[in-house]
């Protein structure tokens, strides 16, 4: 598989790299406290825009849906989440700074755009913060304290599906069934937790607690879903195990350990249609897994870069 290396020009470790919605731009987060935005196509290819705003290593970046404009969020060891917006081509300004966390913010994820401009951030102080902004109001924050005892390592949103689409065959005829906000988080207490926003109580409730890992859960990912009645979540732990949890119409989550890796898997990610699971290991090798017809997950291929 052809691999193309991109020299980022960062002065220190690169912790995260994300492509935007259209796959045209790349944002990288590094220990040198900067975020760089590269154009993958076009004349400006190779000249990154450098975003300075953090004072400590930046752990992750996430692109928002383009319907909100060119927006990017970054989280860092300095306990801040910065939301950036590209005012003019190539120049980015901070439109919001969230600094209420008591520890390093390790992970951020934008919610599906149907919910509006909503961002989840997980921090080392164990709290999960949901930051949102609507047209009418300013930025508001809801905090779920003690989501995971020692720290939250990873969050991922569920695709926007109507309430009950997973659990019952009942249809909402008016077509405006309330979309249920759900997210999955993995933390340092070895647990994977699923949270659901309850509109009656106006707060986040824990929907399920999935226990399997024996060490810190490093990464979780919720698979995009098109028309299938199942929900699928993948989680990777420091113990080297990659587990796929799935739930059909019954409320119980069933798990499949798909891999036991020797290297710590740092991140898991589903493809756009939810078919292929990519697992990135500590030595830089990325393995791809696919579920075949009898429900077994097989390794499809490996991506390595030619050193």
């Amino acid at each position: 598989m052809a691999a193309q290396g991109i020299e980022t020009g960062h002065e220190d470790m690169v912790h995260d790299a994300q492509l935007d919605y259209y796959g045209k731009r790349l944002a990288t987060a590094s220990s040198d406290t900067t975020v760089k935005v590269f154009d993958m196509v076009g004349e400006a290819k190779g000249q990154p825009a450098v975003l300075n705003g953090h004072s400590a290593p930046v752990w992750a970046v996430a692109w928002a849906h383009p319907m909100f404009g060119s927006m990017l969020a970054s989280c860092s060891y300095d306990k801040k989440v910065l939301v950036w917006k590209e005012e003019t081509a190539g120049s980015w300004v901070v439109v919001y700074e969230f600094s209420e966390a008591a520890g390093s913010v390790n992970t951020i994820a934008w919610a599906p755009h149907e919910f509006g401009l909503v961002l989840a951030a997980g921090s080392s102080d164990g709290s999960l913060s949901i930051i949102s902004k609507t047209e009418a109001t300013d930025w508001t924050v809801t905090v779920v304290k003690d989501a995971h005892r020692v720290g939250v390592n990873s969050v991922s949103w569920a695709p926007a599906l109507p309430e009950g689409a997973l659990t019952s065959a009942g249809k909402a005829d008016d077509g405006s069934a309330a979309l249920c906000q759900r997210l999955v988080s993995g933390g340092c207490d070895n647990m994977v937790r699923i949270w659901r926003y309850s509109t009656q109580e106006s707060r986040w409730l824990q929907d399920a607690e999935l226990a399997h890992h024996t060490e810190w859960v490093r990464s979780v990912a919720w698979a995009p879903n098109v028309g299938l009645p199942t929900s699928t979540i993948a989680s990777a732990g420091q113990d080297g195990e990659v587990v796929v949890w799935s739930r059909g119409s019954e409320p119980h989550w069933s798990k499949t350990v798909i891999a036991q890796l020797t290297e710590t898997p740092w991140s898991v990610s589903f493809s756009l249609t939810g078919n292929i699971l990519a697992v990135a290991g500590a030595d830089g090798a990325v393995t791809l897994w696919k579920e075949d017809l009898d429900g077994e997950w097989r390794q499809v291929s490996t991506l390595t870069d030619e050193a």
């Binding site: 995260d16 740092w266 493809s271 756009l272 292929i276 990135a280 990325v286």
Partner: peptide
């Protein structure tokens, strides 16, 4: 305990995967 690799799927032709390496 610092993550050194990240993944992102892209929609472009031939589904690119991005991973960042810092061979630490």
């Amino acid at each position: 305990s610092l993550p050194s690799t990240a993944l992102a799927f892209s929609v472009n032709a031939s589904a690119q995967v991005v991973s960042s390496h810092a061979y630490v």
